[in-house]
Simulated scan of single mutants.
Amino acid sequence: MNERLRPPRRVVADRVTLAHGGGGKAMRDLIEDVFTSVFAPPGMEDQARLMHPSLLDPGARLAFTTDSFVVSPMEFPGGDIGTIAVCGTVNDLAVGGARPLWLSAAFIIEEGVEIATLRRIARSMQTAAEAAGVRIVTGDTKVVGRGSGDGVFVTTAGVGVIPPGRDLMAGNVRPGDVAIVNGVLGDHGAAILAARGDMALTTDVISDCRPLNLLMDAVLAAAPDLRCARDATRGGLASALNEIADAAGVGVVIAETDLPLRPEVKGVCEILGLDPLYLANEGTLVLFVPPDQAEAALAAMQGMAAGVEACIIGQATAAHPGTVVMKTVFGGGRIVDMLVGEQLPRIC
Rank of each mutant, 00 (worst) to 15 (best):
M1V: 03
E3N: 05
V11K: 01
A13L: 11
A19K: 09
A19N: 12
G24A: 11
M27Y: 05
E32F: 11
M51I: 04
H52W: 02
P58C: 01
G59D: 05
A63R: 14
T66S: 13
P77K: 09
D80F: 04
A85E: 06
D92H: 15
D92S: 15
G96E: 14
W102H: 01
I108G: 02
Q126Y: 09
A132H: 02
D140W: 10
V144S: 06
D150M: 14
V152F: 08
V152T: 08
V152S: 06
T156N: 04
A157Q: 07
I162P: 06
I162S: 02
G183N: 11
D187K: 15
D187M: 10
A190D: 11
R196W: 07
T203W: 10
T203D: 08
A223L: 04
R234D: 15
L237S: 05
A245H: 11
G251T: 00
G251E: 03
V252I: 15
V253K: 06
A255R: 08
E256W: 05
D258L: 08
P260C: 05
E264F: 13
L285G: 02
F288E: 02
V289G: 08
G303L: 00
A306I: 01
V308R: 15
E309R: 14
A310T: 04
T317K: 08
G331V: 06
G333L: 00
G333N: 01
M338Y: 15
R346W: 14
